[in-house]
Structures are given as C-alpha cells and as structure tokens.
Amino acid sequence: MVKLEHKKARLVLRLGDLKLEWAIERRYWRNPLIAVSCLLVLPLLISGRADLVSLLTMASIYACIAIPLTWQITGTSRMNFGPQLFVGVGGFTAGLLGIHAGLGPWQTLPIVILVSLACALLLSPLTIIAKGLYFSLITLLLPLIFLEITYYRSDIFRGETGISGIPHLFDLGSISLNYITGCYFSIALALLFLFIVDKVMRSRLGLYAAAINDNEDVANAVGLNTNRYKVVTFCITSEMIGIAGWLMAHYYGTFAGVTYLPLIFMIKILLMVMIGGRGQLYGAVVGAYFVAFLEYFLTGIGPVHYVVFPLILLILLFILPEGLYGLYRKHRYREYYPTIKVRRKEI
C-alpha cells in the first residue's frame, strides 16, 4: 500500500515498511527562476505545434492584462469591470495607424502609449467621483459603448470583421520563426510587467496601495493624497493594459472590437484575477495561464464549449473562495492579502 503524505515541508512516501522522505524547501518553490526558465524553455519544446505556441502567446498577453489589473484593483480600491476598454483603445490605435499611416509596430508603440494615457487621464476622475458600485457599473458600460461605436463607425473600425493587415511584430522571413519570436516577446512583456508591479507592490507605493484598498478615509487622514495616488495608479495600469492591446493587434495582424470588447472577454480577465488568487499578483499570473489553457482545451468538444466554459468558471469560483493561489499559501497569514471589495460604506 503506497501512502503519500505531505507534512511540514516534507513529502513522506510509505510503501509497506519502506519509508522515503523528501524535504521540500519552501523557497525552492518560491524561487521565480524556476517558473521563468519553464516559460523560456516551453516555446522551444512546443515549437512544432503552431496552435500551442499561439496559445502560449495568448496566455502571456492575458497575463499582461491581469497583472496591471491586480494592481489597479488594489491601488484604486475599486473593482474595474471594464479593463478590456484599454485593450480596445491600444489595439485600435495600433491597427488604424498600422493600416492607414503605414507605421510599423515600433512606430505605433509611442503613439499607443500617448493615446492610452490620454484616455486614462480622461477617465481617471471616475476613480474620485464614482465610489464602490457606481464605479463598477460605469466601467462595465464603457467598453460596451465603445463596441457600439465600432459598429456605428464601421467605416473606420470595421465593426463586424475587424481591422486586418496590421503589420506584424517581427518579420524574420519564416512564419514559424515569427510565431516563436512573438511568443518570446509576449512572455518577456508579461515578465517585465510582473517585475515592475512586483517591485511596486514591495515598495512604499505598494504599502500605500494596501492602505487605500483597506481604508481610504484613514489613509487620507494620515496624510496620503489618495486622490492623486488613485489617478496615477489608474493611468499607469490602464497604460499597461493598452500596451497589451497593442501587442495583440501586431501579433495577430488583425484586431476586431467584437473579439475583445464584449463581456465574455472581460469575464475571462476578471476570472483570471479572481480564480487565480483574489487580487494576489502571482495568483493572477497563474490564473491567466490556467484560464487560457482551459479555454483552449475546451474548444475540442465542439460549439457547446461556449456554454461549458463559463459553467466551469462558475463552478471554480464557487469551490475556490481563495483562488488557486490561496490553496498554496493558506498558512502564511502575516503578509498582506489584498481583498477585492466592491461595496464600501456608501450605498
């Protein structure tokens, strides 16, 4: 009879009288180098399968959206129900410039950054005016309105079909080489975002974010300019999401509002954050890859996957109150856990 036990950082295997023990050093698991090298080797291993490479790229881009979103939810203490708005802003800016002005990906990038920043600045007063549910509802509506506009001005945005013929990110001659470089680029961008947000969360800015997420009034009373901090957080994170949109447009060469703006795309992103770890940064990364892979493998069961996929997500939401990451670090309660809160005192 084989018995496998997990006891205080050691794995015990009992096979009759035989007893095997392995000590698991926690920090080995926590060492980010392992995950990073896995991500770096994986594209080479699956380079023969174009669909898997594409999937990995997609998952990394999802991570690029989920990582800043986690910071945004903590730093503004508001639940954004429409992060895909900035995917749309970034993607359409890149796409329209790409096909009309003939700009390459590296020329569109600064313009995408500027346009996203302008949009973020325009919307950032919402983080001050709208509280709790109001903010969630308005952000829920914004991308849907943008979607309406893409239909309304089909002559510009190509509502139904999307923009196609956007210059590709890399042009190295062979298609498979392009895909692999694109994949590496998206992984690199996700890692960069992760690195930045991780650094921020560990610095004093992270402490401020935690304070604002926890109790805005007290934060203001102890001398933190909460309004400025919320606006800055909103702008930077929206900017990062906009860059993810830029990457999408240039990686696929097409960009359609129908794909990225509807609710189902938003729900996917939101669930990466929630199933991953309820606002935990590393949880969001795990969640992004998990949700992307889950969706891909479900497409195998035919068109019914449109029903099964949200169903599985709903079940996961029910059975994992702390998220996937919560399973791993249940006992370490001292460190700060951001909690996603929609309702504050208001309403």
């Binding site: 402490l207 935690a210 304070a211 997420n213 926890d214 109790n215 009034d217 007290v218 934060a219 001292r334 700060y336 856990y337 951001p338 909690t339």
Partner: peptide, 11 residues
C-alpha cells in the same frame, strides 16, 4: 477605532 484592518500593526 479605524485602522487598515488587513495590515499588520507595524504597517
């Protein structure tokens, strides 16, 4: 009493 409830005392 008001505090940052999810932060440690020192934080």
């Amino acid at each position: 009493p008001q505090a940052f409830w999810d932060l440690t005392a020192i934080a």
